[in-house]
């Protein structure tokens, strides 16, 4: 049923195809890479893309193959983006629907906590968390996840507030439904649309945030590649060797685009009101 709807939805399909290419590249990177992504090669510094040398995307200032580094970095970026979004979404949604459903004092306390987190610019908050936790790759997940919690809490709380007073929620209560049942069977499915939009946005912003952190030297540490620290290194030689910055940049752009298209399409597919409209 849902897979058929997905096949008919060209936006979602395009997004899925883009994300699929990345996933395939990551899977491939586990078994085979064109070159060793961390091995230096002083014979081939800053060489442009060429078929003859086998460096399809060129080499960086240490002679490392850029394609291999992008492939290696993809798994880091994707895993960080997925797990940070998952962390932020689960914690934030629980916090939001709890606050929205219970209301009163709980609502006040939880949402003021969210406001405090919200009042920091997200990159600053992430840097702050990284500074406390230390510069480890998995700490990037926590840093970005914590940035996301108040965003998901806000979105889900607002959606719950509009639905909570609906008569169908009252009907469920009068039919003997418990609060947990109402939260997960009635409220959660009905706030799915804004949540999916938020998730797809968050996945792409997480990639950008991870890149920013790595760019600033707080994320993935050299010599291990991530798109962010590749961009950061490429910036210095961009004028004489633009490929060092352009290819990691394009990798980010396309993945972000893929997530956004997928989220857009999923939103339409999951809404029963739009099911026959397409």
């Amino acid at each position: 049923m849902e897979t058929r709807a997905l096949r008919k939805n060209s936006i979602a399909l395009t997004g899925l195809a883009i994300v699929g290419v990345y996933v395939a590249a990551i899977l491939l990177s586990f078994v085979w890479l064109p070159f060793d992504p961390v091995a230096m090669d002083t014979e081939h510094l800053l060489e442009g893309p060429s078929l003859a040398t086998g460096h399809l995307f060129g080499t960086d200032e240490f002679g490392r193959d850029i394609l291999s580094r992008i492939m290696k970095g993809a798994s880091v970026s994707l895993v960080i983006s997925l797990s940070a979004t998952a962390l932020g979404a689960v914690a934030g949604v629980l916090m939001g629907i709890w606050a929205g459903y219970l209301g009163g004092r709980w609502d006040q306390v939880l949402m003021r906590v969210a406001d405090v987190l919200f009042s920091f610019p997200s990159l600053l908050l992430a840097i702050f968390v990284m500074a406390i936790l230390g510069e480890k790759t998995y700490n990037v997940v926590f840093a970005i996840g914590i940035v996301y919690i108040p965003q998901f809490a806000r979105v889900s709380r607002g959606a719950v507030l509009t639905i909570k007073s609906s008569e169908f929620v009252r009907a469920a209560r009068s039919n003997g439904a418990s609060s947990g049942f109402i939260l997960f069977r009635h409220l959660l499915p009905n706030i799915l649309v804004p949540l999916i939009v938020q998730v797809s946005l968050s996945l792409s912003v997480a990639i950008l945030l991870e890149s920013s952190l790595s760019f600033l030297g707080l994320g993935v540490q050299p010599p291990y590649p991530s798109w962010g620290n590749m961009l950061s290194a490429g910036r210095k030689v961009m004028v004489i060797a633009p490929w060092t910055a352009v290819y990691p940049g394009l990798a980010i752009v396309f993945l972000v685009l893929g997530f956004n298209l997928l989220g857009d399409g999923l939103r339409d597919i999951l809404d029963p009101r739009l099911k026959n409209a397409r």
């Binding site: 169908f168 009907a171 469920a172 003997g176 009905n190």
Partner: peptide
């Protein structure tokens, strides 16, 4: 109360908001 609820049921006013759209 949960056990007792099944003996008294409600028909709501608004046929639009009283059914879960999903």
């Amino acid at each position: 109360l949960r056990r007792a609820r099944r003996h008294f049921q409600i028909v709501f006013q608004d046929p639009y908001s009283s059914l879960d759209p999903r």
